[in-house]
Design a binder for these strands. Structure first.
Length: 440
RNA sequence: GUGGUCGUAGCUCAGCUGGUAGAGCGCUUGGUUGUGGUCCAGGAGGUCGCGGGUUCAAGCCCCGUCGAUCACCCCA
């Protein structure tokens, strides 16, 4: 059989890289749980009508088909989910009676999109999503809290610095309304392209597509230029001389987010009036995050507030959430070699084998170390000690244990230092017990 | 989905106007008679992504396909 080739857009990691991913996921999980988010796991598939709700026709959904299904048979109409928000919305409706609101949950699962793969953009990728959803009304303070949870979660990971650009749809749409533009959604979508196509092109599109006057387009651009790390943007927006009740609401909400973030996670959040987030279902705060030096990846963590995450006709469930693109962050860093793990196996100690007859005894020694939580494996063969050390070295296993008539000797193969030890008392340095992530 | 660039050993790459493949690293054996990393000497490893075509002859030219990557689109 010829060597199989990788499948485009379905990245698979080597053991050492997977250790990094695993530890990042563990870290996120701990952080989310520290903030009281419960974990949820939803099925991989959703009915197509659920997935294609929200008028998101452009989403490239992978459809599920049974090989043995009747040619005539009804199409199951199932597709793989392309994010974790849509399944969550469905789950909330389905279990509304059993959930307690406000409900906060996190979900770390793969998602699938049939789009053309690129760096940081895959057909199967891992997303870490947090949401807070309530029944009827969702207080605005959750829009302040969610980015702080993310800040906590990303803190402590050896990643390049990140910056979260935040805006509020009420602010932008209120402003456009205030200057007299009718199609505020359309204007938002055009302004969102500012970084990509430039101010002149945006102005032209505003005039051509939403019927703005050159003066109105100019006002939109003046707003989009405003960004600040503190609430000073409020005065700058007001100085543009536009008044609108929705605008006022948006200004107040965005100021609250920025001020809280400036205090609790300095440098993370910047109010940025050109962030719009396409034509999604967002209705309040919107978030977009870029990683320094990796701006070309686009946003590595985005989300926002949606007033009708779900609705069953009687109740509406407004929510606010953010998704971290775990694969988008990790795969490029791993491929570039700027992120790796201290070893490619969990093993901390390799028990050397002097003689195949001693394997049972060596197994017993290994078991004593394991009993105290030290990941241990026994050498695969009683090869020359030099080879056994090499076996450990290649995998990054830091310690090799030699046993003889005169007791046990633990060798740190990085320093070469070898000392007599009591197997039932020896402890590795805390940082050597488990592999860890290193940035380089 | 549309368009561009690329694909040679496990890895990084060289290979002239077409004349049936090379380096470094890695791997392996020995020097080293039970403690690796340095050094020295040897060795293994390639259907040139895959399939077809042109040609006396294809790694090189043509077509298709798969993969990688970039741009558009969209987004984690």
């Amino acid at each position: 059989m010829p060597r199989p080739q990788p499948l485009s857009g379905f990245p698979e990691l080597l053991p050492r890289q997977r250790i990094v991913e695993q530890q990042v996921v563990d870290h996120l999980r701990r952080a989310f749980e520290l903030h009281g988010f419960a974990n949820l796991r939803t099925r991989a598939v959703e009915p197509m009508d659920q997935l294609l709700r929200k008028g998101e026709t452009s989403k490239e959904v992978y459809v599920l088909r049974r090989l043995q299904a009747d040619a005539e048979g009804a199409d199951a109409g199932l597709g793989l989910h392309f994010d974790l928000t849509v399944p969550f919305a469905r789950y909330v409706l389905e279990n509304a009676g059993k959930l307690n609101f406000p409900f906060r949950r996190y979900q770390i699962q793969p998602c699938w999109r049939g789009e053309r793969p690129q760096e940081g953009r895959y057909r199967e990728f891992l997303q870490a999503d947090i949401d807070i959803v309530d029944q009827g009304e969702l207080p605005a303070h959750y829009e302040v809290e969610i980015p702080l949870v993310i800040a906590d979660a990303l803190r402590g990971l050896p990643l390049p610095p990140v910056r979260m650009h935040v805006n509020n749809r009420k602010l932008s749409q209120g402003f456009y309304q205030g200057v007299g533009i009718g199609d505020t959604e359309g204007a938002l979508r055009i302004v969102d392209k500012l970084d990509k196509i430039g101010a002149d092109a945006v102005a032209k599109l505003l005039v051509d597509e939403v019927g703005a006057t050159p003066e109105q387009a100019e006002a939109c651009l003046s707003l989009a230029e405003i960004s600040a790390e503190d609430a000073s943007f409020v005065d700058r927006v007001k100085a543009l001389g536009v008044t609108d009740p929705l605008l006022e609401e948006g200004l107040a909400e965005l100021a609250a987010v920025v001020e809280a973030a400036a205090k609790e996670a300095p440098g993370l959040v910047v109010a940025d009036m050109k962030i719009a987030r396409g034509l999604d279902y967002y209705t309040g705060t919107v978030y977009e995050t870029v990683m320094e030096g990796y701006e070309s990846l686009g946003s590595i963590c985005s989300g926002g507030r949606y007033d009708t995450l779900a609705s069953d006709g009687k109740h509406t469930y407004p929510g606010v959430g953010l998704s971290i693109g775990v694969s988008r962050i990790l795969v490029p860093l791993l491929q570039a070699g700027s992120l790796t793990a201290t070893r490619e196996v969990p093993t901390c100690v390799l028990v050397a084998l002097a003689n195949e007859d001693e394997r049972p005894a060596s197994n017993a020694i290994a078991q004593r170390l394991r009993a105290r939580g030290i990941p241990t494996q026994v050498s695969p063969s009683a090869a020359k000690f030099g080879k056994q050390i090499k076996f450990a070295d290649k995998r990054g296993i830091p310690f090799v244990l030699f046993s003889g008539e005169d007791g046990h000797q633990m060798k740190d193969i990085r320093s070469g230092e070898q000392v007599a030890v009591d197997v039932d008392a020896w402890e590795p340095p805390a940082e050597d017990l488990h592999p860890s992530i290193v940035a380089q």
